[in-house]
Amino acid sequence: MKRRSFGQGRPVSLFTLGTMRALSSVEHMARVLEAAVDIGINHLETAPAYGPAEQFLGEALRSSSKIPQGNWVITSKLLPGLTFEEGQRQLNSILQRLGVKTLDNLAIHGINLPEHLDWVLQGDGAHLLDWALASGRVTQLGFSSHGSFALIKSALDCKRFSFCSLHLHLLDPQRLPLARWALNHGIGVMAISPADKGGRLQAPSATMRSDCYPVEPLALAYRYLLAQGVSTLTLGAAAPNDLSILKNLAQCDGPLNEQETKALRRLERLRKERLGNEFCKQCRGCLPCPNHVPIPDLLRLRNLAVGHDLVGYSQERYNLIGKAGHWWESVNASACKGCGDCLPRCPHQLDIPQLLADTHARLAAAPRRRLWG
């Protein structure tokens, strides 16, 4: 598998093995690791927040006889907001679990709010990151984020990080300008969950499969991001066979070919045709909403449900709203009061209140009937 530069650290394979799914046993993790070596992966992504993943990974690394050329590159994470002493303890525990003296890449796990970035830049967070580098425990620093465009840009601008992990997807490319800026400034970019969070494309709808024909949706999603120059894409394999799709993609890091370009254009054309004058183009001109409704993000889910019959994925994401803290949206379409404040700002004259009502009707889960009372 080809490798790309990744910030100031060692080059990484086009695909990164995410370790949050192979969790049944150490032996299970070891089998997935060996399959990753066979296919050419050299980069592992883990975190203390992934349950037993980090412990399983460390034990599997110690017992496995297979290693990639040049050894593994490992990324782990720390949550923001820790005290200096707690951060020291947690980083030492990461190194101990993984069985390494130096961690290649340490990411701040979820700079999702302004106070998370403040922690990085001053006080305990700043002291902790300085210590991690100066002590030789960490080679380079990065961050992941589910936050706003402006917050991610501020994190990239702060000159603290040499890599980032962002949600970049075929069906949601709004953060690609940030990725391009980062790459142009020597900052490595890892695409987080481009398959599952990108539309559950490992199990696409029949419509989505037909829309991308003759290219498989998952392959098109991966190739789209690689053609943009993204350093590496995560694949959270639950079993060795989950890596089989990479056999045909290990060397495919160039521009989209003619067949892929045609599939991408067909996908975009059919989405627009099905949505017609209800297609939200994600310009974000409707914001801010006085009731804090994240209008473009909700209408994007409607675009996918109507445009490609990705109903299961869209319902899953919609019904997570308000249940994931700062990791996802907190307000759904039912908060729209029909005030019309957004209407004159929409350059495409969408009836936004009506579309939000339709989004809620399509995607909201029916209340479950209680078994008592």
Rank of each mutant, 00 (worst) to 15 (best):
L299T: 01
L171C: 09
Q122D: 13
D38T: 09
L23A: 06
A335E: 12
N184V: 00
T19D: 11
V306N: 02
R10L: 15
N92A: 11
L117W: 05
D341L: 04
C252P: 00
E216P: 01
Q282C: 09
G254V: 01
K153P: 00
L117D: 09
P52C: 03
R302P: 08
V26K: 13
S76P: 10
Q354Y: 01
G51E: 13
R274K: 13
V120I: 06
F143D: 11
T102C: 13
R200G: 13
S63I: 00
A365E: 15
N319S: 09
I352D: 05
C158W: 01
H167V: 00
G81M: 13
W327Q: 02
G254S: 12
H360T: 03
L287T: 06
R370T: 09
R62I: 00
L320Q: 14
G18L: 06
R370F: 10
E268P: 01
A238I: 04
P296I: 02
K281A: 06
D309C: 02
E27L: 03
R271L: 15
V32N: 09
I94N: 11
G198E: 12
V73H: 08
T232H: 01
H109M: 06
S145W: 01
P173W: 09
G307C: 02
S24I: 06
S64K: 01
V120D: 10
A361P: 05
A237N: 05
A191M: 00
R97M: 12
W119K: 06
L57G: 06
E59L: 15
Q354W: 05
L171A: 08
V331Q: 07
R62S: 14
D118S: 14
W72L: 08
